[in-house]
Amino acid sequence: MQFSLPDTLDILERTPHALHGMLAGLSHRWTDPNEGPETFSAFDNVGHLVHGERADWIPRARIILAQGPEQRFAPYDRFAQVHESAGKTLAQLLDEFSMLRVANLAELRSWDLSASQLALTGEHPAFGRVTLQQLLATWAVHDLGHTAQIARVLAKQYRVEVGPWRAYLPILDRP
Results as ranks from 00 to 15, higher is better:
120 L>I: 10
79 F>S: 15
92 Q>H: 06
32 D>R: 11
1 M>K: 12
21 G>R: 08
174 R>F: 14
155 A>S: 02
38 E>H: 12
48 H>I: 01
24 A>K: 09
141 V>E: 15
54 R>I: 12
139 W>N: 02
129 R>C: 10
162 V>N: 01
94 L>P: 06
150 I>S: 05
45 N>E: 09
167 A>H: 09
89 T>L: 12
100 L>A: 04
50 V>A: 03
109 R>K: 05
60 R>S: 07
116 S>Y: 09
172 L>R: 07
129 R>L: 10
61 A>V: 04
4 S>C: 06
173 D>P: 11
122 G>T: 05
2 Q>V: 15
104 N>Y: 07
79 F>E: 14
7 D>F: 14
53 E>D: 07
170 P>K: 03
3 F>C: 07
17 H>D: 15
7 D>N: 15
70 E>H: 12
136 L>E: 00
75 P>F: 13
42 A>W: 02
73 F>N: 06
3 F>G: 07
146 H>P: 01
134 Q>G: 05
23 L>D: 02
14 R>S: 09
167 A>K: 09
142 H>W: 02
106 A>Q: 10
87 G>L: 10
79 F>L: 14
90 L>W: 02
73 F>V: 02
56 D>Q: 10
50 V>T: 01
102 V>R: 03
79 F>M: 14
76 Y>M: 13
29 R>F: 13
130 V>W: 06
41 S>C: 05
173 D>C: 14
146 H>S: 01
51 H>N: 09
77 D>P: 04
87 G>F: 10
6 P>M: 08
161 E>M: 15
120 L>K: 00
108 L>F: 02
26 L>F: 04
126 A>D: 15
130 V>D: 03
172 L>W: 04
149 Q>I: 04
11 I>D: 04
39 T>H: 08
35 E>R: 13
77 D>N: 04
101 R>M: 01
36 G>D: 02
152 R>L: 05
140 A>K: 01
98 S>D: 11
105 L>V: 00
126 A>L: 15
101 R>D: 00
22 M>I: 03
116 S>R: 13
157 Q>W: 03
147 T>A: 13
92 Q>K: 05
148 A>L: 12
14 R>K: 04
24 A>D: 07
127 F>P: 11
20 H>V: 08
151 A>T: 09
68 G>V: 06
121 T>Y: 06
